[in-house]
Simulated assay, not measured.
Amino acid sequence: MTAPRTMTRAPVRAASVTHVASSLLTVQTGGAGFLDITGEAAKFIAEAKAQDGALTLFVRHTSASLTIQENADPTVLIDLATVLNRLAPENAGWAHDTEGPDDMPAHVKAMLTATSLQIPVLQGRLALGTWQGIYLIEHRRRPHRREIVLQFLGTTR
C-alpha cells in the first residue's frame, strides 16, 4: 500500500510576451571541466529587467555543452566528468581525430548532454532549485573561447 500523496499548485499567472532580450556570453575556458555560469545568467536576467518568461541558453559549439547540475558538492562534477570520460574515452579508436585524440570524444559528450537549456523566469528570478547551477562543460583538454547565446522572452518590470 502506498502512502497518500499531496499535490499543490500555485494559481496560474498569465502574461503576453512583450519583450525579447538577447546577449552573447563569451567564456574563456581553462580546459576540460565544468564552469558555473549561473551568476552570469542571473545578471543577464536582472539587466533585461525580466519579470516572467523563459531564459534560453545556447552554446555555439560542437565540443562543449550546457547542463543544470548540483552546485553544492563539487564531487558531483568530478563524478559526472568521470562518467562522461568512461562513455567516450579518448582511446576508443575514433575515425575522426583531425584535431587531436580528445576531439571526437568531445563531440560524443556534447551529444550526450545538451547544447541548449530553457529555464523559467518567475517574478524576476531564475526558477532554479536550491542546489541547481547552470554549467558550461568544456569537453576539450586545451583552453577554448566559447560563446553562449542568452535570450529572454517574456514580460519586464
Rank of each mutant, 00 (worst) to 15 (best):
N85A: 05
N85G: 03
D97P: 00
R60S: 09
N85E: 04
A95I: 15
F58L: 11
F58A: 13
Q118D: 02
T56D: 04
W94E: 01
V121C: 06
H61P: 12
E70T: 08
T113H: 03
Q69T: 05
T113S: 09
E70C: 07
V83Q: 04
G133V: 04
I68N: 05
Q151M: 11
G133T: 03
L112V: 10
H139Y: 02
G93S: 03
H96G: 10
E147M: 10
N71L: 00
P120A: 14
D97M: 15
E138H: 06
S116P: 00
D97T: 15
I119T: 14
L84H: 01
H61E: 09
P74I: 11
E90M: 12
A127N: 12
A95H: 07
V59D: 07
L112K: 01
G133M: 01
V83C: 05
V108E: 07
I119K: 02
M104E: 10
A54C: 13
A110M: 09
D79P: 00
G124P: 05
W131N: 12
T56G: 07
L66H: 09
P120R: 09
M104H: 10
Q69L: 15
V121S: 08
P101F: 08
L66Q: 11
E138I: 00
V108L: 15
T98M: 11
Q132S: 11
H144W: 13
I148N: 02
A106F: 14
A110P: 01
D103M: 03
R142M: 12
R141N: 15
L128T: 02
D79H: 04
L87E: 12
V76D: 05
T115E: 11
G100V: 01
Q118L: 10
V108A: 10
G100W: 01
D52E: 10
N85C: 03
T115H: 15
P89T: 08
S116L: 10
L112E: 13
L112C: 08
L80F: 13
L80E: 15
A95L: 15
P105W: 00
T62E: 09
E99F: 11
M111Y: 03
G53H: 09
R140D: 10
D52I: 14
